Simulated scan of single mutants.
Amino acid sequence: MMRMLGPVVALLLSASPVAAAEADPRWVFYSRDTTAYTSPWYPGAHRTMIGYGCTRAPYYPPDGRCGGGHGFHHGIDVALPCGTPIRAGRRGRVVSSAAYGPAYGVRPLVIRNQRLGVDILIAHARTLLVEVGDRVGRGTTLALASDSGAPDGCHLHFEVRDAGGGLDDARRPLALLDREPA
């Protein structure tokens, strides 16, 4: 499957170039961090919209772990222009995302890294370039960023859970995002 997608990926990426400066007018930054970060998961340097943990973003119901009626965000949202390629920053195998609800978009993507014992969830992408069962290596183009299921514009939702785990198994994803200040 991956070999057949190579020409398709090249065509998609060449037909819709994405400039890092293209801002989505719907972006709202609930993170006070104004630093743009690079990561092997995406090209260019981009800001965090919503960080992991307690947030004042209105999309999340109040959570007992957070004061002031704030909700809890189980991943990191990175502002990416629509169509930005999302690449694998780690090796793994694509596993089913059938258990994930509509809050993650039409087709969330889950990559299982057996060595680390984690599932990496990529959400809000509309165009997936891999499918269940595919092995992916670092640098493999997985999807194109979109706003699928997202009220606040195109972005990457990056979440890490125990392999086969549920929402309660989500863990701080920064170490696997491998981001660096630009």
Rank of each mutant, 00 (worst) to 15 (best):
G71Q: 06
P81V: 05
H124G: 02
T55D: 11
R115E: 07
Y100N: 00
G44S: 05
G51L: 09
T55A: 10
P58A: 15
R90N: 05
G89E: 15
G83S: 08
D63P: 02
R65G: 00
Y60F: 15
A57W: 12
I76D: 07
V130R: 04
V94L: 06
P58N: 10
P102N: 13
R93L: 07
L121Y: 05
R135Y: 12
P62S: 15
H46N: 08
V136Y: 08
I111L: 14
V110F: 12
A79F: 07
G67M: 11
R93V: 15
G53C: 06
I50Q: 13
L109T: 05
H124W: 05
P108I: 08
G101H: 14
G75N: 03
L80D: 01
R65Y: 10
I122L: 14
R56G: 09
V130K: 04
A79L: 10
P108Y: 14
G92P: 02
S96P: 00
G101Q: 07
R135K: 07
I111T: 05
Y100K: 00
R87G: 04
A99M: 08
T55Q: 11
V132R: 14
D63K: 10
A103S: 13
H74Q: 07
G68L: 10
P62W: 15
Y42L: 00
I111R: 12
G53H: 10
G101K: 07
A79I: 07
D77E: 05
I50H: 05
L116K: 12
R115P: 00
D63Y: 13
V94A: 11
V95T: 06
D134C: 04
I122T: 03
H74N: 14
V118G: 01
G101A: 10
R126T: 01
P61K: 15
H70Q: 15
G64A: 15
R135G: 08
P81R: 07
C54F: 06
C66H: 09
G92Y: 10
H74P: 00
C66F: 06
L116E: 15
P85W: 11
D134L: 05
R91C: 05
E131G: 03
I122W: 12
Y60R: 07
G92A: 13
R112N: 10
P61T: 14
T127W: 07
V118N: 01
G117H: 11
P85F: 09
H73F: 09
H70K: 12
H74I: 01
D134M: 11
V78E: 01
R87F: 01
P102Y: 14
G67L: 14
I86D: 14
R90F: 12
P81C: 07
V130C: 09
S96G: 05
H70M: 14
P85E: 11
D77Y: 03
A125Y: 02
Y59G: 15
L80Y: 04
A125C: 11
S97L: 02
L121I: 15
A88Q: 07
D119G: 12
L121Q: 06
Y100L: 15
Q114F: 08
V94E: 05
C82M: 14
P108G: 13
P108Q: 14
H46C: 02
R93W: 06
L116C: 01
R91Y: 04
G83K: 01
D63E: 08
G105S: 10
R87I: 02
G83R: 00
Y59S: 15
L128T: 06
A79G: 01
G75L: 09
Y52V: 01
